[in-house]
Design a protein around this nucleic acid. Structure first.
Length: 794
RNA sequence: GCCCGAGUGGCGGAAUGGCAGACGCAGCGGACUCAAAAUCCGCCGGGGGCAACCCCGUGUGGGUUCGACUCCCACCUCGGGCACCA
């Protein structure tokens, strides 16, 4: 109304004032040792880029912060830590590009992030922050590696790896997208290097099974299930016929295949081995040798890239050997082809062209026999089987044909029946396969934690004794990788050569650093224990705060980060280090903020930096605007046109607070009381499921109702301020103080609603005839159908 | 190709079996003002009617139901993930 200018809402003054108070009063630092109701509110820590926090980060962190603040008002001791995921190829590439050492850049970026994070008004406990690049942190990342090494969960092997010729490093399979480097887009090549792996595949069963009992976003659960890729099937042994291809003669070799379709065994008319299969050299007939070797060589040169992404034209070579189909007893030719992958199953398949698309294409191209062994029930009875023009891969309603004793049996049941039949003959067994591969954690780069292993001529690989941790990443000016595949660390001789911890002889350090995902796989364990420098995580603190109560982050980490974190938790659980095996009790994926319909990225030049908006509108208005854009878990398109709406709303609340402080004790109308209690209920319920946009609209409706009726009731206004507080923390603190309340609004309690008061005593009931609303009547709540009908008919 | 998710006014979105379009933005009209901004009041899916009202309307086509944005079937479009995984 007649707000004098001095009385107007001034975000700049309000926000600075309350941030200073929070710091001074340690408002955001819960008692970590003896909380009454601990609530660990975690959000995915950012990579501190040179560009600073962007709107996407701000959106994600605000949404998580709102939830934590709401839980605090609900009476929990909420711990909301924040840190920096600062190691990795991102930082290193940027450092190389601008010619500044990452050890200089990262602290600078972190200072900028800290300024921005404080500016957004998050409830962060800065007394428990961390950066993965800090030796006091990566000391324990190295310790973690040693625990896995000692438990036999880390091993080294020479393996075909994805090599990025631009970044000059090995990439995890997960970091290759369509055969190209996830970061720079270069075509990935195949190289063979000694790599450290973690045995995550040992945990495939548990990683899959536990998904049924954690409260996570469905999309994330689905992504993890797909990534694990469980397949039930059978391993079947095929005897090899003698090299001269004479039917009936056998040698001692066996080709073991994995199949999910043992029901089609009678239709297996040839076999295919991966070109790298160890049996290829032994089974190849002399007269086929030249051609086979040429194919194998070509496949190796072809690398993992075109293997997986190139044209799907099937190519292959007959190796001059035959195997015996254990069902039919017939000899079938053995081929090699690059569509069979060595890293999945046994690296060999039985080919059933009639019922597999790939085998069909291959058989058609090379004129191999196609035998139909499944048909619809009617076709099977009539005995008339039309030739196939494409592979028939369905099983529903299909029965076996051309399958000896199994003719007429339903396809689905025959999977098990045929496997059992083979098992009795000692030629097969049921098997479960996973798509998941072991986790390669080696990186031939500079900006990461050195893997704490020492190589000694006499002793072999020796773990660095825990008392010698951390193995400090040396500060070397020339950290540029070259294409030798040798880490830049090997060029730093005083660091590289070291006495063997066991025999004292001159030995060499491992020069690979570990994958950034290892840093982030355990950071949540460190936050509550940052002040302990003699242990990675304090047992009591961990038991008090972990597993994480609520974790919020982007679904781009649905598989990698979240899967690795779960794996590490399981290992630590099995080693007796932690009491839980699932680190994140509840996980919610937030949506993505896009700009003009496209993902924000530096290359598109559409990255929005929040600083200018915060400077112009204040953090609270900006937070409110971001949360009002749409459902938090769906994200939305960033358009700054709508930001004035939230600001107008705050101005209205501000003036309500000013007016309410001068009067009280209004006679409240029934309608207002219902609105008041209904709002308490609705807002709480919507916060709980992260529907912030509708929580905000409910608060707006309450304000509109107060304005429409001229109600300025103090108690309602006070509630409004509390309910709004998670979204607009500084603003609400100031309003709280202006209402004459003591202390922080975050030490208040979220107002309880009286369920009976959340609904009016009468409801308007639409009267519909043939689905059309014909009239509306007012009836008492709880009226019976007869009563309502009587009123309607009257 | 397979697996998820989504299609509602000019725009962001609400309603998950019961009055479609809450809330907000933009727009239009009015009040205040010398004027503008801000603020306040009103209108705001389409069509018809002087009016009370009536008809149509939630990607498309079918279905279930007294009643469908909501459930079922098929299809189209967009977004995301996986992709020669046997």
């Amino acid at each position: 109304m007649s707000d004098t200018p001095s009385d107007a809402y001034r975000p700049d003054q309000v926000e600075a004032k309350w941030r200073a108070r929070w710091a001074e009063r340690r408002t955001n630092e819960p008692n970590l040792d003896s909380p009454k109701r601990p609530f660990y509110n975690l959000m995915m820590f950012p990579y501190p880029s040179a560009e600073g926090l962007h709107v996407g980060n701000m959106f994600a962190f605000t949404g998580a912060d709102v939830y934590g603040r709401f839980k605090r008002l609900m009476g929990f001791d909420v711990f909301t830590p924040m840190g920096y995921d600062a190691f990795g190829i991102h930082s290193e590439n940027y450092a190389l590009k601008i010619g500044t050492h990452p050890g200089v850049l990262i602290p600078r970026n972190i200072r900028n992030f800290r300024r921005q994070l404080e500016g957004m008004g998050g409830m962060f406990d800065w007394s428990h922050s961390l950066s993965t690049t800090d030796p006091s942190y990566y000391k324990w990342t190295q310790w973690l590696f040693l625990q896995l090494f000692k438990a036999g969960k880390a091993y080294k092997k020479k393996a075909a790896v994805n090599w990025c010729p631009v970044d000059k490093t090995v990439l995890a399979n997960e970091q290759v997208e369509n055969g190209r480097c996830e970061r720079c887009g270069a075509l990935v090549e195949q190289r063979f290097l000694e790599q450290w792996f973690f045995r995550i595949t040992d945990y495939a069963d548990r990683l899959l099974g536990n998904l049924d009992r954690i409260d996570w976003s469905d999309t994330t659960l689905t992504a993890q299930r797909n990534w694990l890729g469980r397949s039930e099937g059978a391993e079947i042994d095929f005897a090899v016929a003698s090299a001269n291809s004479e039917p009936g003669t056998r040698n001692s070799e066996r080709i073991r295949v994995f199949t999910t379709r043992p029901d089609t065994l009678f239709g297996a008319t040839f076999m295919v081995l991966a070109p790298e299969h160890p049996l290829v050299a032994r089974l190849t007939a002399p007269d086929r040798k030249a051609e086979v070797e040429a194919y194998v060589k070509a496949a190796a040169a072809q690398d993992l890239v075109s293997r997986k992404t190139g044209a799907r034209d099937k190519t292959g070579v007959f190796i001059g050997a035959h195997a015996i189909n254990p069902a039919t007893g017939q000899p079938i030719p053995v081929w090699i082809a690059d569509y069979v992958l060595m890293e999945y199953g046994t690296g060999a398949i039985m080919a059933v062209p009639a019922h597999d698309e790939r085998d069909f294409a291959f058989a058609t191209k090379y004129g191999l026999e196609i035998v139909r062994v499944l048909a619809s029930e009617t076709d099977a009875k009539s005995g008339r089987l039309a030739p196939l023009t494409e592979a028939e891969v369905e099983t529903q309603g299909f029965v076996l044909v051309n399958s000896g004793p199994f003719d007429g049996a339903p396809a689905e049941q025959s999977k098990r029946a045929i496997t059992e039949w083979l098992a009795e003959k000692g030629q097969g067994k049921p098997v479960v396969q996973y798509r998941l591969h072991d986790w390669c954690i080696s990186r031939q780069r500079y900006w990461g934690p050195p893997i704490p292993i020492i190589y000694c001529e006499g002793c072999g690989p020796v773990p660095v004794p825990e008392k010698d941790l951390p193995v400090i990443l040396p500060d070397i000016p020339d950290f540029r990788p070259d294409d030798s595949g040798i880490s830049p660390l090997a060029r730093h001789e005083e660091w590289y050569y070291v006495a063997c911890p066991q025999c004292g002889a001159r030995a060499r350090r491992e020069t690979d650093v570990s994958d950034t995902f290892l840093d982030s796989a355990w950071y949540y364990l460190r936050y509550p224990s940052t002040e302990f420098d003699d242990r990675p995580f304090d047992r009591k603190r961990t038991e008090t705060w972990c597993p994480v109560t609520s974790y919020i982050g982007g679904n781009e980490h649905a598989v990698l980060h979240l899967l690795y974190s779960r794996f590490i938790a399981m290992v630590l659980h099995d080693l007796g280090q932690v009491t839980f095996e699932e680190p994140f009790t509840r996980f919610r994926a937030h949506g993505l903020i896009v700009k003009d319909g496209a993902k924000m990225s530096k290359s598109r030049g559409n990255v929005v930096i929040p600083d200018e908006y915060i400077a112009q509108w204040g953090a609270d208005t900006f937070r409110l605007y971001l949360m009002f854009l749409g459902p938090f878990q769906e994200g939305g398109d960033f358009r700054d046109a709508g930001i004035s709406g939230p600001r107008r709303f705050l101005d209205r609340v501000w003036s309500l607070v000013g007016e309410a402080s001068n009067e009280s004790g209004d006679e409240l109308s029934k309608d207002i009381v219902v609105r008041w209690h209904a709002t308490r209920k609705k807002v709480a319920e919507h916060y709980e499921v992260l529907h912030y946009n509708t929580a905000i609209s409910a608060l707006m409706e309450l304000v509109n109702a107060l304005k429409d009726t001229g109600c300025k009731d103090r108690n309602i206004v006070r509630d409004l301020v509390v309910m709004l507080a998670p979204l607009t923390p500084h603003f609400s603190e100031e309003c709280w103080e202006r209402l004459g309340q003591q202390g922080s609004v975050f030490d208040a309690t979220y107002p309880q609603w009286d369920e009976a008061l959340t609904v009016g005593s009468q409801v308007e009931l639409p009267v519909q005839v043939n689905g059309k609303t014909r009239a509306k009547v007012m009836v008492n709540r709880g009226a019976t159908q007869e009563q309502a009908l009587a009123i309607a008919l009257a």
